[in-house]
């Protein structure tokens, strides 16, 4: 089955981010396809490479990056939500005159059309959040 995943909450504050990761991983390990993972609302904060959790805790951001690398997973961060919350890649830094970037490997910033397309193309769009 072809899945897409929507993550609506930030890391560490909310279980949604962990559940989304565990679900996505399980789906891939079962041999299903994940068309796209889309990060929206505070979910965009899952994509900052500046996250530094205590060493004995899980690193939610690098965990997503590794999963993306292993399965060639398409992980998209909503541009409007990212701009509001300071998630920046090279293109956005240039466009908005910012002096730094923080997008973690495996993520890309794009528009909400990517979420709608995920809904159209997938058999199931599964949302994690309140």
């Amino acid at each position: 089955m072809k899945f897409s995943i929507q993550v609506n909450e930030g890391p560490y504050t909310h279980q949604a981010s962990d559940s989304a990761y565990q679900f996505t991983k399980a789906v891939l390990e079962k041999g299903h396809e994940v068309f796209r993972v889309f990060f929206y609302h505070d979910g965009v904060n899952n994509a900052t490479r500046l996250t530094t959790p205590p060493q004995d805790d899980r690193n939610i951001v690098t965990r997503w990056s590794k999963l993306s690398e292993q399965y060639n997973l398409d992980m998209v961060v909503c541009v409007a939500a990212a701009q509001r919350r300071g998630i920046v890649d090279d293109g956005e830094a240039k466009r908005n005159g910012k002096d730094a970037t923080n997008l973690a490997p495996g993520f890309r910033i794009s528009g909400l059309g990517q979420l709608v397309e995920a809904g159209i193309q997938s058999d199931r769009l599964v949302t994690f959040g309140d």
Binding site: Y40, A80, A81, L112, G113, V116, E117, G119, I120
Partner: peptide
Amino acid sequence: TIYALESLEVVLIAAAFEQ
């Protein structure tokens, strides 16, 4: 919370995709 506002943004995009 921002959910209502950001929901509206997706609604408009979905409409633009003629769904």
